[in-house]
Amino acid sequence: MTEVTQENKLTKKDLFKMFWRASWTIQFSHNYERMQSLGTLYALQPVLSRLYKGKPKEQRVAAQKRHLEFFNSHPALNPFILGITAAMEENTAEDEKDSVIAVKTSLMGPLAGLGDSMLNFTWTPIAGSIGASFAIQGNFLGVILMFLMINGLYWPLKYYGTMWGYNQGRSLLTSANGKKILDRISTGANVLGVMVTGALITSTVTLKTGLKYGSGKTAIDVQSMLDKVVPFVLPLLITLLCLYLIKKWNGKHVVALIFGIIIVAIALSAFGIIA
C-alpha cells in the first residue's frame, strides 16, 4: 500500500469518465492480436492521468504499457473489471503492479464466459424473440420492448459495475484476505461460465455428417447413429479441437484457424461428407 496524496486520488468524475469511455467505445479497435487491449487503455486514460500526475516519465510509460497487453472480456462486464483495476492501480506501490495485471487477466476469462452465455445467448435472444413476435404482426411495440429490455439491463450493469468494482475492489484490497476473495469470485464465475459454455456447444455449433454406410434402402445414416450414442458429438469434438489448437498456439493464429475451417468445410461439404 502506498500513501495516496490528494492530488493523485481518483475522483468520482474520473471514474465516470472511465465508465463513459468504456461504455461507448470499448471494442472500436478490436483486433485479432490483442483484442480489447487498446480499448481498455483508452478507457483507463482518465484514471492513469490522475494517478500518474507529476510522476516520472518511466513510471507513466510503464503504466500505459502494462495495459496494452492482451485483454478480452464481455463489453457489459468490462466496466466492473476496470473498476477493480482502477482501485488496484490506486492502492498498489510501483513494484507491486504485477498484481494489478494478474487480477485484471484472471477476471477477464470467467466474466467473458458469463457475459457471452447469459447476455449474448440468453437475454438478447429473449429480447429479440419478444420484439420479433410483435414485429411480424406489424406492431411497433416489440421494437420499443426490445430496446428497453437490452438497455434496461446493460446500462446498470456498466455503471454500477464500474462503481461497485472500484468501491468493493478497494475495500477488498484493504481487508486481510482480499486477494482470496477476488480469487473466489473469479473461480465461481469460472464454474458458471464453463458449465454454460459446455451447454452452448449444443446450441451454437452445428456440424453434421452426410455420410451413409452401405447403399440403397439398407444404407445406414451415420449421423442418426451418432445421435443415438452421443448427441452433438461432432460439435463437441470440433470445439475441443479448437481449444487444443488455441492452447497449443498460445492464442495466436486465430485467423488462420478460422480460414482453415472455412476451406476444409467448403471442401468436405462439396463431397457431401458434412452437411
Binding site: G109, P110, D116, N190, G193, V194, L200, T204, V205, L257
Partner: peptide, 14 residues
C-alpha cells in the same frame, strides 16, 4: 462450425 473457435477461445481462458 466457426462458433467453435469462439467457444474454444473462451474455454482456453477458463
Amino acid at each position: 462450425i466457426i462458433p467453435a473457435v469462439g467457444l474454444g477461445m473462451l474455454l482456453s481462458m477458463m
